[in-house]
Every structure is written in C-alpha cells, then in structure tokens.
Design a protein around this nucleic acid. Structure first.
Lengths: 204, 204
DNA sequence: ATGGCAGATGTCACACTCTGACATCTTGCT
DNA sequence: AGCAAGATGTCAGAGTGTGACATCTGCCAT
C-alpha cells in the first residue's frame, strides 16, 4: 500500500520539487535577494501566484526540506525504547538523522553560504530549529517519556539538544569534509552530558 | 564626563524612543501586522522613509532593545576576572543582566504576546539572541579567555549559554510573576554544569 | 554672529513580496 | 459523458523597503 499516487498529486510534487531546485540553484548563483519570485516561477512555467500557493514566503522555499527533517526526527524519537531517558532518546534519534544530513551535504552547504551572505537571512537560519523545539517537547510530553521532568527542565533539555545539533551541523558544514558528523554530534552530546564547564579531553 | 550630549543626538534618540514606544503600544493593541509603518511614522510626526532610517525593517523595531542588551552583556563579560573559566564568566555576566530584564518585564511580556499571536513572527522570537553568539564568541576569543577551548567547544558553550538564557527568560515571562529570574537562571546554569542527562533535584 | 558643512528629514518614484477575488482549466469519480 | 473538487492563471491592490535628490537644521570655525 504505497502512498496514494494519483496523477494530480504526482504533478503537484513535481512542481514543488522543481520550484525548490530552481530556487536553490539561482540563489546560489546570484544571491537570495537578487532572485525574484517571478523569476523562480517563470523558470518552472508557473505563475508567481502559484509559487505562493506552495510556499508561504520566498524564505520558506529555502527551508523546504527542514520541516521534512523535523518530521523524521519525531518519528525516530517515537521509535525509541520507553525506558531510555529523554536525553538518551533524543541523542539516539538525532543520530539516526545523520545519514539524512550526509546525503544532502551539498544542499545544506549551499544554503549555508546563501544564508551567511544575506544579511536579512543571517538571523533566520537556525530559528527553523526553534520551531522544532515545540514539536519535540509536545511529542515527549504526550508519549509520557518526560513524565518526571518539570516544564522548565524539559524546555532546557530540548533547547540544549537542538542547539547541539545545530552547532554540530554548522561545524560539519563549515569544515572541508574531513570531519565526520557522527563524531561531532557524539562530542557535542558528550559535553552536554558531562557538563559544559568541564574541561574538554582534547579535540580536533 | 557624561556622554556627549549635543542637541542633535538628543533629538535623534527622542525620535527613536518615540518610534519604539508608539510601535509597541500599537502592536499590543491591534496586532503586529495590522499596524503599518506609515501609521507608526505618522504618530511620531515623521515620514515613513525616516522610520526606515532608524530601523531596517518593521520587525526590527520590535527588537530594538535587544541589541542594546547584547552590548551590555559584552561589557559585563569584559569585566570578569581573567582567571574565571569562560563558562563561569558567562554565568556571572548573564546574572548581571537580571536587573535589566526585570526592569523591562512589561515590555518583554508584551513583546512576547505580540510574537506568539502573530504567525509570521512566531518562529522569529528569540533568535535575535542567535546573533549574540557571534559577538560573544569573538569577545571571548579576542580577550584570550577561551584560549584552551577548541572552536567547536567554544561554539557549543556559547550557544548552550545563550540558549539557557533564552529558556529562562521565556519561562520567567510566561509565569505569573511569582518566579524569580535569578533562580531560574541559576537553575538553568546548574543543569548545564551538572549535565543535561542528570536527574534534576526537584524543581517547581 | 554668520556662513558653510554635515547630518537628518522629506518627497518622489519604484521594485518586490504577498494576498484576495474570480475566472478557467484539469483531474478524479460516477 | 459530465459533474465536483482541486489546481492554476489573471488582475488588482496593499504594504514593505530602497535609491536619488532636495531641503532643512544643528554644529563649528572664523
């Protein structure tokens, strides 16, 4: 029972993918704000109005894959043993995302360069993950896994974890490729576990 | 030797403050996107063009005080003993900001309600602080305080700290006022120190 | 004090993003 | 075939943000 695959839905997905691909390509080449929605739409033979039916804003097309990744994280989280601590469950779930990131390194890298070279975007980079926090918190709560954490501790835990993820991914993206994302993540979680004021046992 | 206080600068500051105040008042009353820049400008007897000379965007006026607070954090950080660890220095500096936050609780609270009730802003809430990270990292590096931390560890440390600050402030804002920001911050730093996977010793 | 300079503001014109309303075409179903 | 629903196009318009240029005003040297 694969996903219901009517012609309509396939067409839609195709248009969506085309928009993302074309947008990313042009952003990378000419810079985010030198590319207009009209141009993106035109390159896919679609009206600008239609573009906005797929994406709420021009920025959204940049982060199109991010939401999908959040979904996958939530799924991975749901699959963790109920007996593991929220922290461990998060670490395990995040680790499961590594191949996903690795696959899209080029996309992430080009987005990173787009974001850092566009002042208006610089702040909006990681806030996407901010949105993740709410979802993760909700999932941990409703699954009962966070039963003995206070709201405050839970928020701190989740925020700390997504922050670690963000920092690790950024470092991985920024590096020349010799670093392994798993290692970076492992190190980050290790430090969250041991306490941030603990002197690091050497690194890189 | 107080700050050089030419008439010109005073006037400018006055306009700026007026813009922020009027904007915040109207946002709170009518919602962020039902208030136009034109209206804000008009209420201060100023042209819309001038508004954009003070603030790069309509959103920026919402976070006008944030940058100032970042400045103060950097100063406080610079004043810390060179012998304290980066983590301790950050904790101490952040603690010095508490009165600052406390003073503006109402402003922060109304901003919080504006942000959470405006879909287009919901994600953009605290990521202003994201921008803080770069500044803090730079300061720690150039002051030599972070001499024996790897880039990665430093990034993680700073990101973790600002995250703790954000979470604590959010919790404080969301609460009914019975909580003390110092306590929340203290607790957050305590958990960063002890390790996020450590069971909490009771709380609220 | 005064005349010039630099910074602050206003005016105008314009590009671009994003939205609502309505018409049209296409797909899925019977 | 033919209808209903969904997808797209067209059109008009509000709102944000920017460049260019003119004007006004506080500042300072003479």
């Amino acid at each position: 029972m694969g996903p219901v695959t009517g012609l309509r839905e396939r067409k839609k997905e195709k248009t969506r993918d085309a928009l993302v691909a074309s947008a990313m390509r042009q952003f990378a080449r000419r810079g985010f704000d030198h590319v207009t929605v009209e141009e993106i739409a035109a390159s896919c033979e679609v009206s600008p109005r239609t573009f906005f039916r797929y994406f709420a804003s021009k920025e959204d097309v940049l982060f199109a894959d991010s939401d999908a990744r959040c979904e996958r994280l939530l799924e991975a989280l749901a699959e963790q043993e109920a007996s593991t601590s929220p922290f461990q469950a998060l670490e395990a779930a995040v680790t499961l995302l590594v191949p996903d990131y690795a696959e899209q390194r080029e996309l992430l890298r080009s987005r990173h360069s787009i974001v850092t070279t566009t002042p208006s975007l610089r702040t909006r980079a990681a806030e996407r993950q901010q949105g993740w926090e709410t979802n993760i918190i909700q999932q941990l709560r409703s699954s009962g896994r966070a039963r003995d954490l206070s709201d405050f501790d839970l928020q701190l835990l989740v925020a700390g974890t997504t922050t670690a993820l963000r920092v690790a991914v950024e470092a991985w993206i920024a590096a020349d490729g010799s670093d392994d994302l798993s290692d970076l993540l492992g190190h980050a979680f290790q430090r969250l576990r041991a306490g941030l004021d603990t002197p690091s046992t050497r690194q890189r």
